[in-house]
């Protein structure tokens, strides 16, 4: 294509000139904020609505298991001390994330590697904790996605949060590998800052989830199906089953 050829020619002419400017020079933006950083903020605003929708779903369904009279009920399975520890681990990882950014902003590559490794390790400990929690709920307590609405909404909400943490860990480890191969220096501190924004956001969301799912007490489960709201029962009977 003609346009393609033009593109190449422009490139060929420009190569020598650019070498004087080097990679590190950021071109000016209208707001003074780097494109990638603004993209991350836009993404996080979108992710806010994502978690808001999931959390709203959870709040709507948090006492439906009790109403339906189908256990296990949340008050029976939730283990606050256990999850408090993994929550503390995740929150602590925000500190190590900040230290990683501070290190690279001082051009301390070794510090960056140490704190990136620490952050991803803490993230992995959190994920390990979630894995054991899920197995405990599933195998010992008998709570699955299909058991009741608590199971469905609990596993979906915390699972999707865990997915966010896992993506963050993969990102941090990738950055660590790049830095071990000598690819991260002070001028790349924005790369660390951006993964940091994501990481802190995921932590903040966990504070909300931890409060709603674990800390706020649940109603005790009833003995039978009588607790189902009358409207629901009427709806049930109106459905064209059997």
């Amino acid at each position: 294509m003609a346009t393609t050829a033009v593109q190449r020619v422009e490139h060929a002419g420009g190569t020598g000139h650019v070498a004087e400017h080097g990679h590190s020079e950021h071109p000016p933006t209208s707001t003074g904020i780097d494109h990638r950083k603004m993209l991350m903020w836009a993404f996080l605003s979108s992710d806010c609505v994502f978690f808001a929708s999931l959390i709203a779903t959870y709040v709507i369904y948090r006492s439906r298991a009790q109403e339906a009279g189908v256990g296990p009920y949340p008050s029976e399975v939730v283990d606050i001390p256990y999850t408090s520890i993994s929550a503390a681990v995740l929150l602590f990882s925000s500190l190590t994330m900040v230290l990683a950014l501070a290190a690279i902003q001082r051009d301390d590559v070794r510090g960056l590697r140490v704190w990136l490794a620490a952050t991803s390790l803490l993230g992995m400990i959190f994920l390990g904790g979630q894995y054991f929690e899920f197995s405990e709920f599933y195998q010992v307590e008998g709570l699955s996605l299909q058991t009741n609405m608590f199971g469905a909404s609990f596993f979906t909400l915390t699972g999707l949060h865990g997915t966010h943490v896992a993506i963050g860990v993969i990102w941090l480890v990738s950055l660590l590998v790049v830095s071990l191969r000598g690819g991260v220096s002070k001028k790349d501190s924005l790369n660390v800052e951006i993964v940091g924004l994501y990481w802190h956001f995921v932590d903040i969301v966990w504070i909300i989830i931890f409060t709603l799912v674990y800390l706020i007490p649940y109603e005790e489960g009833p003995e039978g199906v009588e607790a189902a709201p009358e409207a629901m029962l009427r709806l049930m009977n109106a459905l064209p089953f059997s």
């Binding site: 339906a68 189908v70 996605l145 299909q146 609405m149 029962l233 709806l235 459905l239 059997s242």
Partner: peptide, 24 residues
């Protein structure tokens, strides 16, 4: 795909009986 009941208020159990799930 996973057999949850987010959007369905009742379903049939293994015995073919109608059970309340609480989905909406």
């Amino acid at each position: 795909f996973a057999g949850t009941h987010f959007y369905i208020p009742s379903t049939l159990n293994a015995a073919g009986e109608l059970v309340f799930t609480g989905g909406d």
